[in-house]
Design a protein around this nucleic acid. Structure first.
Lengths: 195, 195
DNA sequence: CCAATATGTGGACGCTCGTACACATATTGG
DNA sequence: CCAATATGTGTACGAGCGTCCACATATTGG
């Protein structure tokens, strides 16, 4: 059993906390959501995670490395949810309704996800290294959509989802769910695959 | 006639350069496009504009004030172009084609505008003060679209434009112009106003 | 049980940052 | 022509930043 030489005091030297990296990544996402990329620093992440400053540079390759892992985790989790929704849909109408649910519930439901998405897009627009994350995310979304829609419709739909999401974020008043449904209907009209 | 006491040397005291504020705002946009909000500082803007550091705090109310004016100028100029395109269109088909041109030429044509848009959106997603800028921008775009399309279609189209733009930015390969045209056609099918 | 090693930390270094303000000079009013 | 004022600037301050590394300690191998 592990004994602490100075219980309650500052411990130095070797430790055994396997979840450390994970804790730091999650803390990084918290800070990102709260302060944005601009306001995220090693020190703030360390404080949020409850680890010493040195740990954030020890486990990750600079700030960019940390951001990369954090946003990868974020994009993957959003992507998972998207895929689950689309896979669960059994026919074309269910697929359309799944898209509506994604727009209305998944992204709009949570300010945090929305803000994080924007931060990631902005970073990706500037740094190619982060574009790999958004590309993978988009590729997965499209693959999921293509279970139900043809390739062209999929790309249009993907763009529409994005646009509806963004505008919802910047709009003051809430959007009519019926309108989202109608927009999805227009884009996907007669463009389904056989099931 | 204005005489300089120390020609070629450092000048202090009262000066008469009315374009100073403008110069600084433009320089700020340059820095923003190059380095992002995160990397923009008074010093960098001052260097870019060729003015002393003090000038950037003298003419503007802190960094936020400067950012606000810079992004206002940016959004207004994009918005002008949008409005001009839509106003020039004389019938429904021309309006559809104008939208395609906006997507393909205006936004995608210039990486700088794209990056600046993202930076602004991200800021707006986090700070309400900047949301006023994006709201005004969106309101103008919609008003311009409503010259040709009904209100519901306008909102859908606005979102679609946004989404196509964003995805174009993050996509590696160029998008087929025909597909943009097709997407616009689907959304606007039988939704025009009388002219 | 004792080296050797792996693991992690605290603190320091050099930098950039935003802001504030004493002061220098151009302009203006009398 | 001279005070008074408007206009702008140089500089300094304190804070926060990323990164680095000597070192402390837990673990392991012999």
């Amino acid at each position: 059993m592990t004994q602490e030489s100075r219980p309650g005091g500052t411990r130095r030297g070797r430790r055994n906390e396997p979840g450390r990296r994970d804790t730091i990544i999650d803390a990084c996402l918290d800070v990102l959501a709260r302060e944005g990329v601009a306001g995220t620093s090693h020190r703030k992440v360390a404080a949020q995670a409850g680890v010493p400053l040195g740990a954030t540079t020890y486990y990750f390759d600079g700030m960019d490395g940390l951001l990369h892992e954090a946003f990868t985790r974020f994009a993957t989790s959003i992507s998972d949810r998207f895929e689950r929704r689309m896979t669960a849909a059994e026919d074309l109408d269910a697929a359309r309704e799944a898209v509506v649910a994604i727009v209305l519930e998944d992204v709009f439901g949570d300010d945090r996800d929305l803000v994080l998405s924007h931060e990631l897009y902005t970073l990706a627009a500037r740094k190619p290294a982060f574009r790999a994350i958004t590309s993978a995310w988009m590729a997965r979304s499209r693959a999921a959509l293509e279970r139900h829609f043809d390739a062209e419709t999929t790309r249009m739909l993907d763009a529409l989802i994005e646009g509806l999401t963004i505008h919802r974020a910047l709009d003051a008043e809430p959007r009519d769910p019926g309108e989202v449904r109608a927009a999805v209907a227009r884009i996907t009209r007669a463009s389904g695959l056989q099931h």
